[in-house]
Every structure is written in C-alpha cells, then in structure tokens.
Design a protein around this nucleic acid. Structure first.
Lengths: 185, 185
DNA sequence: GTATGCATGTAATACGTTACATGATTGT
DNA sequence: ACAATCATGTAACGTATTACATGCATAC
C-alpha cells in the first residue's frame, strides 16, 4: 500500500497535529523558524501534503475565512494522529542516534502533542542513554585514531564528540527539569 | 555538462584525495567511522564512484596487489583535487550554517588535505563567525517564542541553541589551538 | 499601474534507498 | 564442506531539487 512515510511528511503531519495550516503557512514555518533545515520549496511541500491527504492522514478543513484568497488548510485526522504517535514511539535502536539524530529530535519535539508526560519522559530517557553511549564510543574512537589523523580531521572528530556531549547534557538537564515540573502538578 | 557534484560524491572524493581506496573500503569507512551518517549501501556508493570517474575526478589506480581478489581502488585526479578545493573554498553564506551544517563540517574536515594552514584558519574563522551569529539569532528567537510553546517544543528549541553554542565554542577553541600550533612551526 | 507578497501547482531530472544478485576468498 | 567476509554490481521505486508557471490581493 501507500505505506512508508518520509521524514518531511512526518514534519508536516506533526505541524498540523495541533492547529490546521495551509501549504503556504508550512512553507513559511520551514523558512522562518528553526525548522529551516527542511526545504521550503513548493515542489516538495505541496506534493508531500497531497500524499498525506491521499493516505488519509491529513484532511482539508472547511475554509471559514473572510478572505477570498484561495487557501486550503490541512489538519491531522485521527488516523494521522495515530500514525504520528506510532512514529514517535518507535523503539530507538543503537545507531539511530548516529544516522538519524535530526529525526529523533523531531520526534521528541512533537511528542508533547500526542504523548502523556510519562511517555515523553521515557522517550527522553532512551534518547539520553543512547546519546551518552555514543558519546563514550566516540571518545574511545578519538583516543585510538586521533594521533594518526590530520589536524583538520582530528578537529572535525572532536567537533562530533563535543556535539554529542552537548546533546547528552541537554537531555540530562531536560529530564531533570521535566521531573521537577511533574512534581509541581 | 555533468556539472553538479553531490555531497556524497564530495565525501568520496575527499576520502580518496590522500590515498586510493576501493568502493568496498569506502563502504567500510562509512560503516565503521563517524562518517556513519552516510549510507554504506552499495547501491549509493558504486554508482557515485562511477559518476566521479566519468567526470574525470577520480581514476582507478593499477592494482599492484599480491591478492588475486578483484578490487579497484580509486584516487582523486588533479581535476578532482581542484574540484575538491573549489568546493571547500566556496563562500560560506549566512544560512549555510542552518541548512547545510554537516556539509560545512565535511568541508572543514577535508580542508587540511588541499589547503594551506592560513586558508584553513580563514575557513574556520568564517565558520565560527556564522555559528556565533546564528546562535545569537536562535537565542533571540527563543526569548521571543518560548513562553508560548509546548514543553517539548521549547526543549527541542533549547537543544538547537545548546548545539550551536557548543559548535561555536568548538570553533573558537580549534582556532586558538591552530594559531598556537602555527607559532611552533 | 506596478511591485510585492500570498498561494498553489507541474515537469524534468537526478539521486538515494531497498532489495536482489553474483562470485571469489579465507578461515574452520 | 560451510560460513563469513570480501567485492561489485543492477533494477525498481520514490522522492527531493530546481525551474518554471499562474493568478489574486494589497499597498504605494
């Protein structure tokens, strides 16, 4: 069937999980917010939106607008919400953190919309564990190969190490913050 | 003509700029080293290698090997070195750091092989400037929108902020290290 | 009345992904 | 003898990129 869903499609789906948005508004989001790494080109967004609609994951909402500008806003359907949830709660495997970190972060960013607090915490815990694990891996690799590397190669490797450590620290702090907040509610 | 060169192709080209490597060895690199975010699938690497060969940027080196295993190692040609250099020294525009940071890092990682120390420093300075600039942008954006965001959305935004700050700090430290080293030579 | 922003689309192309396929060599 | 690893490829498919194209609305 029209099975798999691309990361771009999930990004769109997650964006219309809360309030409906039109293709143009989604483009502006990708252009103006830190979701900038997604292309804002109409050639990617409108077709992706149509695919989601064809799969029944989003649906156009009646345009109760005073403006006569043609504009079709889409919203996630119940099936869309389920698909989003399924994607976000997919198991995090070792190595996802290496080859698909941006996707994991996107999943986390959207998790608040479809998951309960306890599940969000669980997701973040998994993420933190994998980040720490890979940071340690990288550190070991660095110690092993750094002596024989070129200066820029070694620095690039260091960059990766620092970045993963920063990510791991972020996850720890975020986790602590969430647990604190959970008590005050 | 066979103009543009994909990031994967540059990754391969840069990898064979120093010593020749076969498709299989390149796959293993992508599998076992922190270049893991590149796919190690034969369906991407062998065709990309062939495209590079067709463009005259890499060439097979005579297999003076004792092993009778068929194996074709490729090395960057002079034209390949020039193309690599041209890519690495392309101007860094505002926003590259947002939409193409991994590519910028790859360029830096390979820069040692084709650029002089002064040019590498210049590249890193540009990179550092843009990283700081965007980190500041993100911080301003955070202050503006954070109050109205969901918890996970806000945390994801924080993550981006921390990550860019970590990158900027790395660039500063690397720069300081390079300048120190330049004196001792 | 003309430029800018809103708003949506299509067509050509090239590329990466996945799956499939083959065979030689080394180690046990 | 068999499994694992070395080593290279092809075919189908979907999708992102780029460029082109259209038209309405608003502000000046």
């Amino acid at each position: 069937m029209g099975r798999s869903i691309s990361v771009l499609e999930y990004a769109l789906l997650g964006s219309v999980a809360g309030s409906p948005l039109s293709g143009y508004e989604l483009r502006r989001r990708f252009l103006e917010t830190p979701m900038r790494h997604f292309s804002d080109s109409p050639g990617s967004i409108y077709p992706a939106l149509k695919r989601l609609a064809r799969k029944g994951l989003v649906a156009p909402v009646p345009t109760a607008e005073r403006s006569r500008r043609r504009k079709t806003a889409f919203r996630a359907t119940p099936a869309g919400q389920r698909a989003l949830r399924a994607w976000i709660t997919e198991p995090i495997t070792r190595g996802d953190v290496v080859s698909a970190l941006p996707e994991l972060k996107l999943r986390f960013a959207f998790s608040g919309a479809v998951l309960g607090m306890a599940e969000v915490v669980h997701l973040l815990e998994k993420l933190e564990r994998e980040l720490r694990f890979y940071a340690a891996d990288l550190a070991a690799y660095y110690r092993k190969v750094a002596p024989g590397m070129s200066l820029t190669g070694r620095l690039a490797l260091e960059n990766g190490l620092y970045e993963y450590r920063a990510n791991a620290r972020w996850a720890s702090r975020a986790l602590a913050g969430m647990k604190r907040e959970a008590k005050n509610s």
